[in-house]
């Protein structure tokens, strides 16, 4: 069941992205930035966690979850260290996506040539 909803919710978030592409004529950079900000705001009002509970990877794989986990990291640290934690805790939870992308980016650059 969770597989079905992962498909549907994940697909739906991508449709929102496609609408930003085609109807609002935004480029990928702008679209992804907006989605990340939306993810952060949704987590701020407490709506993103339920979506993750409901749809699993359907909510964690889209880039929106990036904003969500940044807020999460900041909030976790804020609980421990107060306002300073908001600044320092940011990457506590999200580092996986960024570090994986950078690591595999460099490895990719070593192994591959652009195909053109």
């Amino acid at each position: 069941m969770i597989f079905f909803w992962a498909f549907v919710i994940g697909g739906a978030i991508c449709v929102i992205g496609q609408i930003l592409f085609d109807v609002f004529k935004l480029n990928p950079g702008q679209t992804l930035t907006i989605l990340v900000v939306v993810g952060a705001i949704l987590d701020g009002v407490g709506l993103y966690e339920p979506l993750i509970d409901f749809a699993g990877a359907g909510a964690t794989v889209p880039i929106t979850s990036f904003g969500n986990s940044l807020v999460h990291g900041a909030m976790q640290e804020a609980e421990k260290h107060g306002l300073v934690g908001v600044v320092t805790g940011m990457f506590e939870v999200t580092s996986a996506g960024i570090s994986a992308a950078i690591i595999f980016g460099v490895i990719g650059a070593i192994i591959f040539k652009p195909k053109g």
Binding site: V15, S65, G108
Partner: peptide, 19 residues
């Protein structure tokens, strides 16, 4: 957007620039 919005799209943006 189907392949740009998932985290794979983020990875693709980083890796393609690197290559």
């Amino acid at each position: 957007a189907g392949s740009a919005v998932p985290v794979t799209g983020f990875g693709n943006a980083v890796i393609s620039s690197a290559i």
